[in-house]
Design a protein around this nucleic acid. Structure first.
Lengths: 168, 168
DNA sequence: AGAAATCAGTTGCTGGTGCAACCATTACCC
DNA sequence: GGGTAATGGTTGCACCAGCAACTGATTTCT
């Protein structure tokens, strides 16, 4: 091997970079749909999606399930409650937490957004065969698990949502 | 319940979500290295990497190559120039643009960071076989191309870098 | 029981980011 | 040639996210 340059590093072959670009491209495109059609942000969508899936959860559950910082969840829930999309009910067994659920209006939004989100996903992966799609997910799972063991203090803090808000 | 959900949408099987979580996990871990060891942010790192690869480029070139918003590039370059990591030289042929290059100190940083970045990448993909690694990159390439045709007005604006800065 | 630690959730603050408006320079073209 | 459009780059503004500090509720420990 040639030893002139210590190591070749081409950004376009650097995994963290490629992953980040693809993820934000996909997110931004999807965020546009959420924002323009339904007036919700990505964190808000994640909450709606979680509650659509599980009926009733606490903010803490949602933060863990949707991998968001608790302050992000808090503010997104506040906005959704304000708009009557999410309902907060006290838990008599533990007054620290609140039980969150979709209102009827919230469920209507969920049922309108979910098909569009899935359609978007299908459009994105339409260039892949079924096998490739499964492989891709499996590799993501593997890498995700790898990250969790590489960086143990991750699930605690973390925070995904590169959002890219709606405005307007 | 009488409600029949039209389509199942589980967040953990939703590609945009999975992609985003993985990308930000990887980015955050890497950003920590950049920040703690070298005091640079992800946008700054992308600029250093680009200039390390191509010697001399304009801010516009870097923005295109590293997929960042021009204002992000502008500010990151300003910070790097301030610290003497990159050098700005006027282009006599076109006074609008500036030619950017690493200083000696900048190159030293590049040559220190690059191996660490690559080591990190190797650690992340160490759970994959060589073939899986190639497949993963190929699928990312495919999806990336797919996104570009799905959302044409993308390369113009876009902006990756969910950064997650150093601070502290 | 009472003090201290822990936990769910909220909020002030700071910093980074995209957008859009702007400045200066160059290209276009009638 | 001269006016207008386009281009490279900077910056003010508004917004959002994470951190950390805080409140109030519950658990733990002695």
């Amino acid at each position: 091997m040639d030893r002139t340059s210590p190591e070749p590093l081409a950004l376009e072959r650097f995994l963290p970079y490629r992953l980040n670009v693809l993820a934000s491209t996909v997110s931004n495109a999807l965020a546009r749909i959420y924002a323009e059609r339904f007036g919700i942000t990505i964190p808000q969508w994640r909450i709606v999606a979680t509650l659509g899936q599980f009926e009733t959860r606490t903010a803490r559950d949602i933060a863990a399930h949707a991998v968001m910082h608790k302050s992000t969840v808090s503010r997104a829930v506040a906005a959704l409650a304000e708009r009557g999309i999410v309902e907060r009910r006290p838990n008599a067994q533990d007054m620290r937490e609140e039980l969150l659920a979709l209102t009827d209006e919230g469920r209507a939004i969920y049922e309108a957004v979910a098909p569009e989100a899935l359609a978007f996903e299908r459009a994105v992966v339409s260039g892949l065969t079924e096998g490739e799609r499964e492989t891709f997910f499996r590799l993501i799972d593997t890498l995700d698990a790898r990250m969790r063991s590489l960086v143990p203090d991750l699930d605690v803090a973390d925070a995904a949502a590169n959002a890219s808000e709606a405005s307007r």
